[in-house]
Design a protein around this nucleic acid. Structure first.
Lengths: 198, 198
DNA sequence: TCGACCCTAACGACCGTTCGTTTTTCGACC
DNA sequence: GGTCGAAAAACGAACGGTCGTTAGGGTCGA
């Protein structure tokens, strides 16, 4: 009975999380049934529970995985020894690249995380706050170093940056005219220009 | 038996659409049951069907209502006799104002429209395309009149503008430090600056 | 022989929708 | 102004189906 549940590391389980990411991103959490998931894996509904504890746990795994990827990339950008504009560009490019390379997990992270139970949602909320904090840090540095205008509202600018990046997944289609990196760089170019003094 | 269904205009029905907008925005389409909706209206589940044809029809009404509001405001901005930058600002401010004034419908329009059946989704898709076309039109005019840089990718810039505006609902909370109009104007300021020549 | 893996069956609950019946509403008529 | 009748609105039981989850038993490779 639910003999796994804790040992998050089994190849079969990883496979399930991956399948769940795809299905949740396509049909939404509530629109995906355990039957859908079982079908995608060629199993019976009940057999899934040898590897996972619950559907909710599966959602958490997908969301957390998505969050961690953004955090990892963001951390690298923050730690750079470079102008704020350069760091901001790096973060934005990394953000868009991450969102597109792992489109499924990123979509679930952004759209479905609100269906987590309060306890699990808090864990994710903390990661979201931390990520937003990274962007704010860079913008603040830019203002302090007079790279950016003094009258930009830090929290507001950070949200603009994230807003732009977060909507990417909604219209990005692989094989389109632009790749992830180019999209990120163009975003960065326009946004940074808006932040700089005239 | 389903005596209404066509006469979309009855006060009780409007009330249901409004309640559905709130519930769908909070819990998602698939996360909202007819029982939830009935509870919110103080009715029994089955009684809803005297006023509506199906849950799907309700979703369509909410989504279309949201789409029409954006289109209406956008049209006004496009028709202005003014510089492209002014029209773009007007559109963005109107966009954010609309999203915030009708937060529920806007959230459903942006998040849940993909759960519409293909036929109904096509109707909404056409409206989305039309709206994006308005933004593109303004940006194109701006380039032609040399208000904006010649090297901006029109489709891309339009999407950046919409991306920024569309994420608003995710973090906006009524009673915060900024009102809808101010948010829209600050968005516009930053974005237009990025589009203008150095 | 053991344990990992999956199947089958079943659980109680809830899903969206239908429909015949009952209650409420409200304008027309005495 | 009170009464009546029809239309509108709501009830409440039932429909077939699906939901997430549990549990026990079988299969098979190590």
């Amino acid at each position: 009975m639910a003999q796994a549940a804790e040992i998050t590391r089994s190849p079969r389980r990883e496979e399930m999380v991956r399948a769940a990411a795809r299905l949740f991103s396509e049909r939404g959490y509530h629109g995906t049934s355990m039957q859908h998931l079982a079908d995608a894996l060629g199993l019976q509904r009940g057999s899934l529970y040898a590897h996972i504890g619950s559907k909710q746990e599966l959602l958490f795994d997908v969301v957390e995985e998505g969050a961690d990827r953004f955090l990892e990339r963001g951390q690298k950008a923050v730690e750079m020894q470079a102008l704020a504009a350069v760091r901001l560009r790096r973060l934005l490019v990394g953000h868009v690249e991450t969102a597109i390379e792992h489109l499924d997990a990123a979509t679930v992270f952004l759209n479905e995380w609100r269906y987590l139970s309060p306890g699990l949602a808090a864990v994710v909320q903390e990661k979201r706050d931390r990520y937003e904090g990274m962007v704010r840090q860079i913008v603040e540095d830019g203002i302090k170093e007079k790279e950016f205008r003094a009258d930009v509202n830090v929290r507001f600018a950070a949200r603009l940056v994230l807003s732009a990046g977060n909507w990417t997944y909604a219209w990005f289609r692989p094989g389109g005219e632009m790749g992830a990196t180019e999209i990120g760089e163009r975003f960065a170019e326009l946004l940074i220009k808006g932040l700089e003094p005239s």
